[in-house]
């Protein structure tokens, strides 16, 4: 489990961007591409190394006029961490 103060960032081995041809956010890496669904894209868009997970959750809830997104966000970040898509700023 990661501390509430840890701030996720996109791993420098990947590049995150909007792909017009795919109409989706993607992660690019050497000779490959991960096409992200909308919620994954919205979460990763906020993984800027500055925001904590609770801040990301609050931001998403405000942007999409929703509540109770914490569990979904945390589950996704756990998976993204296992895939090596993100790293954690802790200093």
């Amino acid at each position: 489990m990661t501390a509430d103060s840890a701030r996720p960032a996109i791993n420098r081995l990947f590049r995150f961007q909007w792909e017009p041809a795919q109409q989706a956010h993607v992660l690019l890496y050497p000779e490959g591409m991960v096409k992200l669904n909308q919620s994954a894209g919205e979460i990763l868009k906020r993984c800027d190394g500055a925001r904590t997970v609770p801040q990301i959750v609050a931001d998403l809830e405000a942007a999409f006029n929703a509540s109770g997104l914490a569990a979904e966000v945390e589950a996704f970040l756990e998976m993204a961490d296992a895939q090596n898509w993100i790293t954690w700023n802790t200093d």
Binding site: E19, P20, A21, Q22, V26, L28, E31, G32, M33
Partner: peptide, 8 residues
């Protein structure tokens, strides 16, 4: 323009 994303 055709959507290619990887340039080697």
């Amino acid at each position: 323009a055709l959507g290619a994303a990887q340039f080697g």
